[in-house]
Design a protein around this nucleic acid. Structure first.
Lengths: 146, 146
DNA sequence: ACCTAATTGCAATATTGTTGCATTTATTCC
DNA sequence: GGAATAAATGCAACAATATTGCAATTAGGT
């Protein structure tokens, strides 16, 4: 799976370096928003030592290439699971287990565009996050500390 | 107008202190996302000196009381213009002049809830921001530096 | 005007993010 | 496979942002 992202990197002329692959692995494995320092810490615990500056720059690149997304509510980074989200980022965040799920819907976009235009606003990008409970956590005891 | 917010504060048992009124004034006057340090700086230039810790705590309180909102995309704070946004925060941000406009729509909420539920997700809050051009800036030359 | 709880300021510290430059590394070409 | 080289990383220093505990101040009720 990391392989897909590696291809994207190379297709755009970026190198598939070891640090970049390591960050990709973490983001794929942990489907929850992670800060740059979170990622550094996780890798550190695995004996992989990346400078935090490097992590910042990698995440920055990934966001530009749409390989990752910076969550609006928490500022944490997640791996994008959808390829074709043209300037429209939508995620559901489970308030219990912290899991995130990306989604897209043409109908929602159109509804939002129409609504905005009625207010004289010409929309270019939508950002939206839903907070709630995922199907696994719905009807269970809370898990997440915080 | 600050008066409305002052009433909200007092109705909830919070004091209408000078620092709080000053922050309210700035947020009302400047309808663009402002960081805590922005606000401190603006007030400082007017001869009003607030400690940044105070600004942080005030903004924190305002958000809890729904008097202010922390923008998802920028992290800046804006004054809420709608009273009855129950856990649902929606803003349009002009990419040109930076102006923000809060909005609400029952229909959008319902559509989003329905969509999420089809994916097994039980939504509690919606956060959404549209980026685009406001009616004044649409069809003009760009203004915002950055 | 006084009392008291709430709020603010201060100092110290922690966390997060940025910049310039020397060193290393992934790819291209032979 | 082994250079060449442009890109990427690490390092060090620093800048910006955010948090905590506690003493001093202030708003609101009497």
């Amino acid at each position: 799976m990391v392989q897909n992202s590696v291809r994207t990197l190379q297709a755009q002329g970026y190198k598939a370096t070891k640090p970049r692959k390591l960050v990709l692995e973490v983001l794929e494995e942990i489907e929850r928003p992670l800060s740059p320092y979170d990622i550094q810490g996780i890798l550190h615990a695995r004996g992989k030592h990346l400078n935090h500056v490097t992590v910042y720059r990698i995440l920055d690149l990934f966001c530009r290439l749409n390989l990752a997304h910076k969550m609006l509510s928490s500022g944490g980074f997640v791996k994008c699971s959808l390829d074709a989200v043209e300037g429209c980022h939508r995620f559901m965040v489970c308030q219990d287990c912290g899991a995130i799920q990306e989604f897209a819907d043409e109908g929602l976009c159109q509804g939002e565009n129409r609504f905005a235009r009625n207010l004289g606003f010409h929309t270019e990008h939508h950002l939206s996050e839903f907070a709630g409970l995922c199907s696994r956590c719905y009807g269970r005891q809370p898990q997440l500390t915080e």
